[in-house]
C-alpha cells in the first residue's frame, strides 16, 4: 500500500497553510502589541456588541430568505426533466463567472434612488423606494450572492432520494403533503443544514457587500476585521481576537443546529 504516501505532500501543505495560520491567529488574539500574553482584546469586545448584533441579525435574515427561496427552487428543479434541470443548474452557477464585486456593484445601479428599480416603479405608477445604503440593500446583496450555495446542496440531496421510498409512501396512502412532510423534508435535512452553513458564514463575515450596498452606514464584523488588518486602525491582535470570537459563535450556532437536526451529517462542522 504505497499509495498512502501520495497524500503526504498535501498533509504537510495543510499543516503549513491551513493549520498553522489558524494557530497564529489564536496566538495573536491572546497577545498584545509587545508580544505578552493578554486578554485585553477580549475584554474590550463589549464595545463591538452592536456590530456583532447587526452582523448576526442580517446574516440570519439573509439565510432565512435564502432558505425560503432556495428550498422551493431546489424542490421544483428536482422534479423537472433532466434537460431543464441541467440548464437551470448551469444558469444558477453561471453568474459566478462574472466577478462578484462587479455583480454587487451592478446592484447599486438597480437599487439607487434613480436606479432601474425605482424608474420601473414610477413607470408603473408606484412610489419609489429608498433601498440603497440601508440594511435592506445589504440583505438583498447577501441573498443575491449566496442563494446558489443554498440551492445546490439542497438540490443535490433531494435528487438522490430513492423514488421507491416515495412510491412506497404513496402506496401506503400518503398524499403529497404527507409525502413531503414525512419523507422528502426529513431526508433533505442534511442538504438544508449544509446550505444554511454555506450561506450564513459568508454573510456574517462579508465586508464588501456592506461597503458597496450599505454605503458605509452598516458596519459589519467583516468591516471591523478588515480595518484591523488593512485599514487605518492597524491592529492585527484585536482583529484576530474579533475573528476568533466570530468563529466561536458561528461554531456554536452550527453545533446547536446540528444537534437540532439530529446530527445527520458529519461533513459540515468545522
Amino acid at each position: 500500500m504505497k499509495k498512502r504516501g501520495l497524500a503526504i505532500p498535501y498533509i504537510i501543505w495543510m499543516a503549513i497553510f491551513v493549520v498553522s495560520p489558524l494557530i497564529i491567529v489564536i496566538i495573536y488574539a491572546f497577545t498584545n502589541e509587545t508580544g505578552q500574553f493578554s486578554l485585553e482584546h477580549f475584554q474590550g469586545m463589549g464595545l463591538y456588541s452592536g456590530v456583532f448584533g447587526t452582523s448576526f441579525f442580517l446574516a440570519f435574515v439573509a439565510t432565512a430568505f435564502c432558505l425560503l427561496i432556495g428550498y422551493p427552487l431546489a424542490y421544483v428543479l428536482s422534479r423537472e426533466s433532466p434537460n431543464v434541470r441541467k440548464i437551470s443548474l448551469i444558469l444558477i452557477m453561471l453568474p459566478m463567472w462574472m466577478n462578484f464585486l462587479l455583480r454587487t456593484y451592478a446592484w447599486m445601479s438597480i437599487l439607487e434612488s434613480n436606479g432601474f428599480l425605482n424608474r420601473f416603479l414610477v413607470f408603473i405608477g408606484l412610489p419609489p423606494l429608498h433601498i440603497i445604503n440601508t440594511e435592506a440593500a445589504v440583505v438583498i446583496g447577501m441573498i443575491y450572492n449566496f442563494l446558489p450555495f443554498m440551492v445546490l446542496p439542497i438540490y443535490s440531496v433531494i435528487i438522490k432520494i430513492d423514488h421507491k421510498v416515495i412510491e412506497a409512501a404513496q402506496d401506503l396512502g400518503a398524499n403529497s403533503i404527507v409525502v413531503f412532510r414525512r419523507i422528502i423534508f426529513p431526508l433533505s435535512l442534511p442538504g438544508v443544514l449544509s446550505g444554511i452553513t454555506m450561506v450564513f458564514i459568508p454573510s456574517v463575515s462579508t465586508f464588501v457587500i456592506s461597503k458597496l450596498l450599505g454605503g458605509g452606514m452598516t458596519l459589519l464584523l467583516g468591516d471591523l476585521i478588515e480595518t484591523q488588518f488593512l485599514g487605518n486602525t492597524y491592529n492585527p491582535h484585536l482583529g484576530s481576537a474579533i475573528s476568533l470570537v466570530m468563529m466561536a459563535i458561528v461554531m456554536i450556532c452550527m453545533a446547536v443546529m446540528h444537534r437540532f437536526g439530529e446530527g445527520e451529517e458529519e461533513a459540515v462542522l468545522l
Binding site: F17, L22, V25, M247
Partner: peptide
Amino acid sequence: INADIITGVSLML
C-alpha cells in the same frame, strides 16, 4: 467552511 476573511487574514499573518 471557514469564512473567507479568516482564511485571508490568517494566511496574511
